[in-house]
Design a protein around this nucleic acid. Structure first.
Length: 718
DNA sequence: GAGTTTGAAACT
DNA sequence: CAGTTTCAAACTC
């Protein structure tokens, strides 16, 4: 069932629409596993007494004692203390995780709304469309309601007010009008409150907004139909990730705008991802005792974690941010909401409380399943600000400093690019008549850079995987390359020397990415040079409005239809080298190419030969990789196999008893033999012989101990 | 790793 | 728009 008309679908930006080839990223959260490891041989806790005993015994006895210690250590039930120690670190983490993922979930049986108040959240709610004003309201943000976090976590029947805010998402046509995410002040119905599980909660309104002179057919659906739609399509669980967008300390730069530290309710970040139900997305907010979470709300529109997004960051000091993660797009959009709007219904009664709105998934699925846009509806999640870090939800940031807006406000208003051309750093001005909210569109890396320090700090301190949706790199299709390809082939670092990485020569810049771990010199493609970067972006857009668009357009009927948007101009490479952008993108040249001597066409024998060679090489590489992996696995298995025992069928090889302690004992024996030979002033040849004999005795002892351990083990049926 | 080749981007 | 220059990646040795 189509939720959105094809007309609407066709108008939506490709970056939003392109949901194909989205790689499902497995849930990155690595739950600490119980200690199933077995002790390493070299970790065998051989006591000093064992070795000392050996010193008092004959050399062979010493070796035997050490070997016996190793053998005993391998017996079942006896775990290496080292192993336990190592795993205990994980266990130590567990309580924190358990606390952080504590989730209070309220599920409405009728609407399917699931409200999680902390920790991992799954939000599955129907959506609604409204045809009014040709607008899509992607999200209806529930008003915040002050409630203590601990209380919320403990009370399943959490009260949530849902009236109020609407997120208007305006599509953009080709007219160059900026996309506007507008959160009107009017939507709210203060005073109306309801529980999160109320199936008859105020229906979110969705409107389709036309831009660029093209009019969209409004899509209207009732709440019931919406539920049916969602169920029929078996939408994946919409999950919410709440991350506080803590920003670096506000500095003296004009580009930075300090956000209010003491923002109470409505401080939300919702990163709603469409992912497998089995991999719940984390919802986490964290606050230092003295400070509050930055009011940020983000909405992920489909997509998976690990995507790269653009972010729209308000230039004002609004307490909320709406973040939309778009599947297939490398961008996400974050919007700060004015305090007025954010607090339309549920006002922060306690400055130290943050809230998270429940979401309702909006599925904009048109025709050929081009777009699936789950949008969450606000749902209140409350959390007491002064909360110990260990009890904080999974993705945690603290706001120990004032927020710092990452985009300069002044020059931003000049940039109003096409939505589909939005380059990193683009700023969307506030809508006329709308709230006084400005938007800065930045790549996810921007957010990553912005948050990295805090995330890293806290994540590491809490031993928590910092797997935020806004932190991960893009795994989305780019230039026609599948997500898997882009994932397997990480972006190469650039080597720019003269362009300051602010021209399209720089692949990082051209791809809308910040330079990261590059080899460039005098790089301006970073947060420290926001102004210059913005200027460069504007210049590029002035020169070519589609400069930041993928060069390889995606065909409608498969990869074979992919083609270069401009065509290549190769003259000497025959379009069979990576100089050629078509060849590099693994596509054939098309009629729009202006290449000379092109050999990159379907029937080209040169191309076929090249492809065969390439395929053969790839097969070889794969085989080698597989062989390496297998060998590595075998070696690893061999090394890790510390309990071969009888159950393995073969028994334990003697060399596995050559532990560090056994070696040391053996060496002591040999040294002792050498000493004796020296004291008795034996000839060198005789001394060498005696030492070798001693070594033989040691080996025999080791082998004997191994065999004995095997027999003992068998006798006790271990 | 240095030098060369190549073609896109930038410039005029 | 065409010609030239600049630039960084691809390629070769």
């Amino acid at each position: 069932m189509d939720v959105v008309s094809p007309e609407l679908n066709s108008l939506l930006p490709d970056e939003i629409m392109d949901t194909e080839a989205i790689e499902e990223v497995p849930h990155s959260q690595s739950e600490p596993t119980h200690d199933t490891s077995v002790p390493m041989e070299t970790d065998a806790p051989v006591t000093s007494e064992s070795l000392n005993t050996c010193s008092n015994a004959t050399p062979a006895e010493r070796v035997q004692a050490a070997t016996a210690a190793a053998a005993a250590d391998s017996a079942p039930g006896s775990q290496s203390s080292i192993t336990i120690s190592a795993s205990s670190t994980l266990f130590a983490i567990k309580p924190a995780l358990a606390t952080s993922t504590a989730t209070t979930k309220t599920t409405d049986s009728l609407t399917g709304t699931t409200v999680s108040t902390s920790g991992t959240q799954k939000l599955t709610t129907p959506f609604a469309f409204s045809a009014a004003n040709h607008q899509i309201i992607l999200n209806k943000v529930a008003s915040a309601q002050a409630t203590e976090a601990a209380k919320a976590a403990a009370a399943p029947a959490q009260l949530i007010k849902q009236e109020g805010q609407k997120l208007l998402v305006t599509t953009i046509g080709k007219s160059g009008q900026p996309i506007v995410l507008q959160l009107p002040h009017t939507g709210g119905k203060p005073g109306v409150s309801q529980t999160s599980g109320d199936a008859k909660s105020p229906t979110p309104q969705f409107k389709v907004v036309t831009i660029g002179g093209r009019e969209l057919k409004p899509v209207v659906g009732s709440a019931g139909n919406q539920v049916t739609t969602l169920q029929a399509q078996q939408l994946k669980t919409v999950q919410v990730t709440v991350v506080s967008v803590a920003s670096p300390p506000s500095n003296t730069s004009q580009k930075s705008v300090a956000l209010p530290v003491n923002v109470a309710l409505g401080q939300q970040i919702l990163a709603v991802q469409q992912s497998a139900p089995a991999s719940p997305v984390k919802v986490a907010t964290s606050q230092t005792p003295a400070q509050n979470i930055k009011p940020v709300q983000s909405v992920a529109v489909g997509g998976v974690g690990g995507s790269q997004f653009k972010t729209i960051i308000p230039l004002a000091t609004q307490p909320n941010v709406q973040q939309i993660q778009v599947p297939g797009s490398r961008f996400h959009y974050v919007r700060l909401v004015t305090a007025t709007t954010a607090n339309a219904a549920g006002q922060p009664s306690a400055p130290n409380t943050s809230s998270v709105a429940t979401g309702k998934p909006l599925v904009v699925n048109t025709g050929a399943v081009r777009m699936s846009v789950p949008v969450v509806q606000a749902q209140t999640m409350k959390q007491v600000a002064p909360k110990p870090l260990t009890s904080a939800p999974q993705v945690v940031t603290t706001t120990q400093t004032q927020q710092r807006l990452i985009m300069p406000a002044t020059p931003l208003t000049q940039i109003q690019p096409n939505f589909t051309n939005l380059p990193p750093g683009t700023v969307l001005t506030s809508a006329p008549g709308g709230s006084n909210v400005g938007y800065a569109v930045v790549p996810a890396q921007y957010v990553t850079q912005l948050q990295q320090s805090q995330f890293v700090t806290l994540a590491s301190s809490s031993s928590f995987p910092a797997s935020s949706s806004v932190q991960t790199q893009a795994k989305l299709p780019y230039n026609g390359v599948s997500a898997a390809e882009t994932t397997s082939r990480p972006r190469k670092p650039c080597n720019c020397t003269k362009s300051q990485c602010l021209k399209l020569y720089c692949d990082c810049f051209a791809n809308g990415e910040f330079c990261n771990n590059c080899n460039c010199n005098n790089c301006f493609n970073n947060l420290e040079h926001e102004t210059e970067r913005l200027k460069a972006i504007k210049t590029c857009l002035d020169r070519n409005p589609e400069a930041f668009k993928p060069k390889i357009g995606k065909g409608k009927e498969g990869e074979s239809d992919r083609r270069h948007s401009k065509g290549c101009n190769c003259k000497r490479s025959g379009c069979l080298k990576n100089y050629c952008e078509c060849y590099e993108a693994k596509i054939m040249c098309s009629s729009i190419c202006k290449c000379i001597g092109c050999k990159n066409f379907e029937e080209s024998p040169e191309r076929k030969t090249l492809m065969h060679l390439a395929d053969a090489a790839e097969v070889r590489v794969q085989q080698q990789t597989a062989a390496k992996t297998k060998l590595s696995s075998q070696i690893s298995d061999l090394l890790m196999r510390t309990t071969p025992i009888i159950s393995s069928g073969g028994g334990r090889l003697p060399y596995t008893f050559v532990t560090k302690e056994v070696l040391e004992a053996t060496c002591e024996c040999l040294l002792e033999q050498a000493k004796r030979a020296e004291q008795t002033r034996q000839p060198q040849a005789e001394a060498e012989r005696a030492i070798l004999e001693e070594f033989g005795h040691c080996l025999m002892s080791i082998i004997s101990s191994a065999g004995k351990a095997k027999t003992d083990c068998a006798s006790i049926n271990c």
